[in-house]
């Protein structure tokens, strides 16, 4: 019996276990410090509306990172596609049909931006980091050219329900997040594409010589990442009930931090949905705890950077020890 438990613990990813314990620890500490404010239903609901926004972007970042690249343009894609959705919805007059059309357009724009990234990375062999950094500028600039600065408001009634509404007390955005988590997990574990992608991330040259079409895999990866960006963008704009180019500016660093914290290898090849999901929740708990304790929001930037560095250093030291053994 004891052996069984032991082997089970060894089998469950150590990183995920640590994240899980960390999450519980935050819950306990905050429950003791501020039981009223932290454990209140409104706070937990508020968290439920917030974390899917960047959580979905994290999945895009994770896919790009597993394939051996990185996607820094996600926030740009998110804002551009939500702006296009807003423009379409306003033009079509604000019926339910227009909302659906707007969302479809946003997904198309996201996919298009992703394919553009993928083309530059996979075909022209420009490093992903540079392409997506430029992409961020390009997509933000395009969004700015459309909005001319101010936010687009007056979105049709009902659009704000996408992020702010709920079924049986569960916010819609959480449901979207869970569905996407399952889809991405399925893609990674049970499809040929997912396995080919992680092979490519581990060793690009070896995957090329073993007959994997690297260009195709890169294009698909960044397209999915772009679509995820667009979904994140719709949730963000639905949450604020408006669309603007500089929403979610801090999310780029945050998604990178979460993905690395969630056990994704920055050099490519490794990563799992469960780890990233746990990391998303832990980060949201920390963020919420900071708000309740009324800590200056700039401290958050500082702490996030610190967590990012510490996680990577600890992982690296553990890895080095394993290699030596």
């Amino acid at each position: 019996m004891r052996q069984k438990v032991k082997s089970f613990i060894v089998e469950v990813n150590k990183n995920n276990l640590m994240l899980f314990l960390l999450g519980i620890a935050i819950f306990i500490v905050m429950g003791i410090l501020q039981p009223r404010a932290f454990l209140r239903a409104a706070n937990i609901r508020g968290m439920g509306v917030q974390f899917p926004e960047f959580g979905i972007l994290c999945f895009g970042m994770m896919l790009a990172m597993i394939s051996g690249g990185i996607d820094l343009s996600l926030v740009g894609i998110a804002n551009l596609s939500s702006i296009i959705a807003a423009v379409v919805m306003l033009k079509e007059g604000g019926s339910v049909y227009s909302i659906v059309l707007g969302i479809l357009c946003a997904l198309l724009v996201g996919a298009g931006c992703g394919v553009f990234n993928g083309f530059l990375i996979g075909y022209l062999k420009i490093p992903a980091m540079l392409v997506t950094l430029c992409g961020l500028q390009l997509y933000t600039g395009l969004g700015l050219a459309i909005t001319r600065g101010p936010a687009i408001t007056g979105l049709p009634a009902g659009f704000d329900k996408i992020a702010n509404g709920s079924i049986l007390g569960i916010p819609h955005s959480v449901i979207v997040f869970v569905i996407l988590a399952i889809i991405v997990s399925f893609l990674l574990r049970s499809t040929v594409y997912g396995h080919q992608m992680s092979f490519m991330g581990t060793n690009e040259i070896a995957s090329k010589y073993s007959g994997i079409n690297n260009l195709k895999i890169t294009l698909i990866t960044y397209m999915i990442s772009g679509i995820l960006g667009a979904i994140g963008g719709i949730l963000i704009s639905s949450h604020y009930n408006s669309a603007k180019t500089d929403y979610g500016k801090s999310y780029t660093l945050l998604t990178l931090l979460i993905v690395v914290l969630g056990g994704t290898d920055p050099n490519g090849g490794k990563g799992n949905v469960l780890g990233v999901t746990l990391a998303v929740i832990v980060l949201q708990l920390i963020s919420s705890a900071f708000n309740i304790l009324r800590i200056n929001s700039f401290v958050k930037t500082f702490v996030w950077g610190l967590i990012l560095i510490c996680t990577m250093v600890i992982t690296r030291i553990i890895d080095n020890r394993n290699v030596r053994e």
Binding site: L256, F298, G305, L306, M312
Partner: peptide, 23 residues
């Protein structure tokens, strides 16, 4: 420690910027 340069410097950037504004 051979960490990826982009992510390491992004972390340091966040620490430095956060420290400036917060402290």
């Amino acid at each position: 420690l051979h960490l990826p340069a982009l992510i390491a410097t992004l972390g340091v950037s966040s620490v430095a910027n956060g420290a400036t504004l917060a402290f």
